[in-house]
């Protein structure tokens, strides 16, 4: 798998390169500012881009805007956006093209190396990965939602994990239950939230995130 990364802090850039390389991801280019991102992506056409939100020259949300722009130029280009903080508004902007192949994660997540590399692979394969922090903020926003109020605590747990972009198998693993039990929970959740059931993982995540963010 080939990756392009955009990160201005040498400390983190080197760490990321080492981490990805150790897990058989070839880093074909590493850029350190916003304006170089789109060009590097057009040149290298990687399997995945890992982009920091705050980059020179403005040190604001340069990386986020570049990621959105790059996906306009190369539709479906898998991008993992990393940041020191997450903002539901930015998640909404990233998801607005509904293309899949998108990750939005706190930088903290690189500490859990196995899960992080797995997330990068899932995004490269066209999946959606949303940071648990974004999901919990969306849950807070829906705290008074009657439909969500009808979910059992376990169903709410499953809903959060699905919103993070996990597959049935991963959810089952996390909750230490059978995959069949997870499928049943998911069917119930979709029923209670009036969502159209879908076998397609990505469409399912999108539906759940759209529901939470409405």
């Amino acid at each position: 798998m080939r990756a392009v990364i955009a990160e201005d802090l040498a400390l983190l850039r080197d760490g990321l390169i080492r981490l990805l390389t150790a897990h058989d991801v070839e880093v074909v280019a590493a850029v350190g500012d916003g304006p170089s991102i789109v060009g590097a992506l057009l040149d290298h056409r990687p399997d995945v881009a890992v982009v920091d939100v705050r980059l020179p020259p403005t040190f604001t949300n340069e990386g986020l805007l570049a990621a959105i722009e790059a996906r306009k130029r190369l539709p479906g280009l898998p991008v993992v956006v990393l940041s020191q903080y997450v903002e539901p508004l930015y998640a909404r902007e990233l998801l607005s093209d509904r293309g899949g192949g998108l990750g939005y994660l706190l930088k903290d997540r690189v500490m859990d190396v196995g899960t992080f590399v797995e997330s990068v692979r899932r995004v490269a394969a066209g999946g959606t990965v949303m940071d648990p922090e974004v999901v919990s903020q969306l849950f807070e926003k829906r705290a008074r939602d009657e439909q969500i109020g009808r979910l059992t605590p376990r169903e709410r747990e499953v809903l959060a994990l699905v919103a993070e972009g996990r597959s049935n198998a991963a959810v089952a693993d996390h909750l230490v239950v059978s995959e069949k039990a997870v499928s049943k929970h998911i069917a119930n959740i979709f029923l209670k939230l009036d969502l159209a059931p879908s076998e397609d993982d990505n469409r399912r995540v999108m539906a759940v995130l759209a529901y939470l963010d409405s």
Partner: peptide
């Protein structure tokens, strides 16, 4: 992160007042 948010919310630095107010609204129940 929580501390920084209380001093200088990054979204305000990124987007200015209009964007930051919009972010508040997006997160409002």
């Amino acid at each position: 992160r929580a501390l920084v948010k209380g001093i200088m919310p990054p979204v305000l630095a990124d987007r200015g007042l209009a964007g930051a107010v919009y972010a508040l609204v997006v997160a409002s129940p």
